[in-house]
Design a protein around this nucleic acid. Sequence first.
DNA 1: AAAGGTTTCAACCGCAATGGC
DNA 2: AGCCATTGCGGTTGAAACCTT
Length: 251
Amino acid sequence: MVRAPCCEKEGLNRGQWMPEEDKILVDYIGKHGHGNWRALPKQAGLLRCGKSCRLRWVNYLRPDIKRGNFTKEEEDTIIQLHQLLGNRWSVIATKLPGRTDNEIKNLWNTYLKKQTDPFNTSQRESNKKKNNKSVTSHMVSDMPVPTATEQQQQSQTSDHNSVNAKEESLSSKINDENFWLEALSIVDSSASSSSSSSSSSMDLTEAEIVNPAIGQQCFDLFSSYGTDDDGMEFLVNFSMGVVDLEELSLF
DNA sequence: AAAGGTTTCAACCGCAATGGC
DNA sequence: AGCCATTGCGGTTGAAACCTT
């Protein structure tokens, strides 16, 4: 079967959006919402395909878009999440309010990828000086996640027996209340009784990781369980320092 | 000043996923 | 179950801006 083109290309504008086009799109969506993207350009009077309109809105015209340089915290978050999720830009973007997947992808491809590559460490620094842009460069985290190179080195140097022994050791801690009390600080215990300190972790709702070393152990352990969608969501939150304690029952 | 090289990022493309019929 | 339309995602492109020589 011949694939249908995404839009009629004849007579439609392509390339850079003109300010007038932006205004038409913003005005239309402000009044009617975007509804059906394919039908939108015709209804709004734009000589663009629906796909182009959607992209322009999502990546540039949305009112909640945060423009400007990424902060150090945002960069660190992206680096951590990328190590966890790979090139799942849309998932990463959900953890950075106001940032788009396209923006994050561009940042990664032009800067962060080089940052995490030990053989290209100084490239952006020199560019930064050239461009006089205020992008910070470092990789500091309260709960450090190993770089891809480090992970590779780790996998090369450790044998399966020692890994299994470590997992068994960590697994045994999951049901150890003191282990969790040491690692976590309760953020939201409203759904449980105030005597939560003496209850099991399953009675609590949400906690912050206050002991990075233990947090790292937990992360290693949970990662070893594999990652379906729910597990992935848990790991994302965990990597950002927050634990949904109800999810612990999954492990 | 200008030519050539490099970087950035908005926009495009093609494919996969999803949902309705 | 299968087809089709639509949406969303990630990879890629190319024009513009910037830098170096």
